[in-house]
């Protein structure tokens, strides 16, 4: 029941290469089987073949479980230095200045995974932008997977996760150690909310944001879906709001109406018009 057929293995090879740039050589057949056995058991299916069929059907929870099982690649805090530098130096100062009368700030992490990106933003605001402490903040994280949204909400992280790019000063300030896990401080957790959201489906009526982080998710969509998601994101940005994409992603050729600005080692996109 635990053996992967050659066809299953080749599918998983391609899937993991596409999804996570993981290269699995043929001799890793054994590794696939031992690592996926617990996933097979937890998913309540009979075999690796059934897992493969679930992925082919687009079952995102199974996808996430398989990628998690095959990688030790924890999401980093402050993932990629450049976008967070752009947030600190350009985006946040500008957006905060523009909202000084409204005293409101809304930020959406639209593919939030286990929450590191949004919690990182919350830490930056707390540590470096004390002027917004009394504002109405809406820090919103969404993802397609129940598993990752639940984990993001719980605010519990392992030592391996906490090691990934989190400055020591933030570790001691924003986390407490509890039962082998590092738990995000209540003061920070109370500022964020996490919900399920499928970017590829029609979007329900929703509020507008000052900043949308849409990072490392467009790469999984076909061109038509990319264009649709970017149009929707633009429609839900406030005038002169900012869109931050992953390093390999760009709105070029997909959507009009963004002004691209080089910022450190990255490019950020400001919605045109005031």
């Amino acid at each position: 029941m635990t053996t992967a057929t050659t066809e299953d293995f080749h599918f998983l090879q391609q899937f993991l290469l596409d999804r996570s740039a993981i290269v699995l050589s043929e001799e890793k057949h054994y590794l696939v089987e031992t690592r996926l056995l617990p996933v097979v058991q937890r998913a309540g299916v009979g075999s690796i073949g059934e897992l493969v069929r679930a992925i082919r059907r687009g079952d995102r929870d199974v996808e996430v479980a398989v990628v998690d099982a095959m990688t030790t690649n924890e999401t980093s805090w402050f993932r990629d230095a450049a976008p967070f530098e752009a947030l600190r130096k350009i985006v946040l100062p500008e957006v905060i200045a523009a909202n000084v009368v409204r005293r409101k700030l809304s930020i959406w992490s639209a593919a939030c995974s286990t929450g590191q990106e949004l919690y990182s933003v919350a830490m930056i605001l707390d540590a470096e932008f004390s002027e917004v402490a009394s504002w109405k903040l809406d820090l919103h994280g969404t993802d397609l997977s129940t598993t990752v949204v639940d984990k993001a909400r719980s605010g519990h992280f392992t030592a391996l996760e906490i090691n990934r790019g989190l400055p020591a000063s933030h570790l001691v300030r924003y986390f407490r150690h509890e039962g082998g896990h590092y738990v995000i401080a209540d003061a920070l957790r109370s500022k964020v909310r996490f919900e399920l959201f499928n970017l590829a489906k029609p979007w329900p009526p929703m509020q507008d944001y000052d900043i949308i982080l849409l990072r490392n998710v467009l790469i999984y969509f076909d061109v038509a879906t990319k264009a649709k998601v970017l149009e929707e994101a633009k429609a839900h940005l406030r005038p002169s709001g900012y869109l931050l994409l992953g390093t390999a992603e760009s709105p070029r050729g997909l959507v009009e109406g963004f002004h691209s600005m080089p910022a450190g080692g990255t490019t950020i996109y400001r919605k045109e018009g005031a």
């Binding site: 030592a159 391996l160 090691n163 020591a168």
Partner: peptide
């Protein structure tokens, strides 16, 4: 951890750690 940082340590890596974590802490 606070004692070590106050004594002058600049970063903190908890064992066990992945190779990527070492690189990120150096960054």
């Amino acid at each position: 951890m606070v004692r070590a940082l106050l004594a002058g340590a600049n970063e903190y890596l908890i064992k066990p750690f992945s190779a990527d974590a070492v690189l990120e802490k150096l960054s």
